[in-house]
Design a protein around this nucleic acid. Structure first.
Length: 350
DNA sequence: AAACAAGACAACCGCCCATGA
DNA sequence: TTCATGGGCGGTTGTCTTGTT
């Protein structure tokens, strides 16, 4: 069955010939594409408009970058995928010169398999139930954590189109309330309150994201965390191997987000000029000090309660929600970003 | 050298959404 | 408000290339 635009036409399918490419390029560069459904006829092609559009966008555009993905690109894909899921078009926007199709193919043919080989669920980036990499087991050799090795307190879902558009609304994160506990005395102190937003490497529609280890020396301070009475963790004796240990460069996601009964909603508030925007956890007692700055963000938790799950509002231009913060929280075993490089750690060999 | 398998990549399919009549 | 249409997107399939036996 053809598309609306070409169902009445007899169109050619399959691979494009160099001659067809030439016709399309010549037409688009001369006239622009305008209405894609009209392009085939005007360009003298026996193709459907959608096919022309796809060919142009994915292969003929002059600004496309061809060739293998770099390690940096791979890392970006992994990082952004962890946040957005299979939203290839959104992911591709973080990779100049790459298309959603290219990213998708690269993911399916390479990255996905390697994540699986690492025992990570390519959908959630969590450890799969049957996988227990040593790095994670090491963190569980003590009884300070009740988290099962296969689970993190929350995961990023791949919401349907109906309820999620990162450019318009908030990505939803599925939180497993049962796993969200907050240690009462975990220090989270961000040392870097004013990183210029232009330093953030991934930017789109005013949403600035940083996955880089911008400040590897940063620590965190949950000074008010003691208010979380339902925490079941023993925080008074955290061994150096614990995820809570700050010196090993890994902070457990439960610490990062700290929500005893389900930190329900997080949202970024629009900053006033010269004031850092804030990250709120709606549905949670205030747990962090206003100076809990992370890469230009204040982690701010307020009192409201709801059951919606966490939201990160990406609407506001200039928002610089810190995804380093998030990535630290999301990594199941701390093996990737605590102080290292995900690519190095996973030893991609594509 | 041939056959087969696996991987990589290009293209299509079908759905959804936005827009305009 | 409804419907038709075009554009965009993610999932899937088909085809070509490369490696292995």
């Amino acid at each position: 069955m053809g598309h609306h635009c070409c169902s009445k036409q007899k169109v050619k399918r399959g691979l494009w010939s160099p001659e067809e490419d030439e016709k399309l390029v010549k037409y688009i560069t001369t006239h622009g594409h305008g209405c894609w459904s009209a392009v085939p006829k005007l360009a003298g092609l026996q193709r459907c408009g959608k096919s022309c559009r796809l060919r142009w966008i994915n292969y003929l555009r002059p600004d496309l970058k061809r060739g293998s993905f770099t390690e940096e690109e791979e890392r970006i894909i992994i990082d952004v995928h962890r946040i957005l899921g299979n939203r290839w078009a959104q992911i591709a926007k973080h990779l100049p010169g790459r298309t959603d199709n290219e990213v998708k193919n690269f993911w399916n043919s390479c990255i996905k398999k390697k994540l699986v080989a690492q025992g990570l669920d390519p959908k959630t980036h969590n450890l799969m139930p049957t996988s227990k990499p040593n790095c994670y087991n090491n963190n569980l050799t003590n009884n300070t954590s009740q988290f099962p090795s296969s689970t993190t307190p929350f995961t990023i879902s791949s919401p349907s189109k109906n309820n999620f558009d990162p450019t318009k609304s908030s990505p939803l994160l599925d939180i497993n309330p049962a796993l969200l506990t907050l240690p009462p005395q975990i220090n989270i102190v961000a040392n870097e309150p004013n990183i210029p937003i232009e330093n953030y490497p991934y930017q789109e529609n005013g949403v600035l994201m940083s996955f880089k280890d911008q400040n590897p020396n940063s620590t965190f301070d949950f000074t008010n965390a003691a208010s979380c009475s339902s925490s079941s963790l023993d925080h008074t004796n955290i061994p150096s191997s614990s995820p809570f240990n700050q010196t090993n460069g890994f902070i457990d996601e439960s610490v990062m987000w700290g929500a005893p009964n389900g930190m329900d909603t997080m949202e970024l508030s629009q900053p006033s000029e010269g004031v850092a925007p804030t990250l709120h956890a709606v549905g949670q007692e205030q747990q962090t000090h206003p100076q809990n700055y992370v890469n230009g963000r204040v982690a701010d938790f307020n009192d409201a309660t709801n059951e919606k799950g966490m939201e990160i509002d990406g609407n506001c231009a200039g928002n610089a929600f810190d995804f380093e913060y998030m990535e630290s929280a999301l990594m199941p075993c701390g093996m990737l970003y605590g102080g290292g490089n995900s690519i190095e750690q996973l030893q991609w060999d594509c």
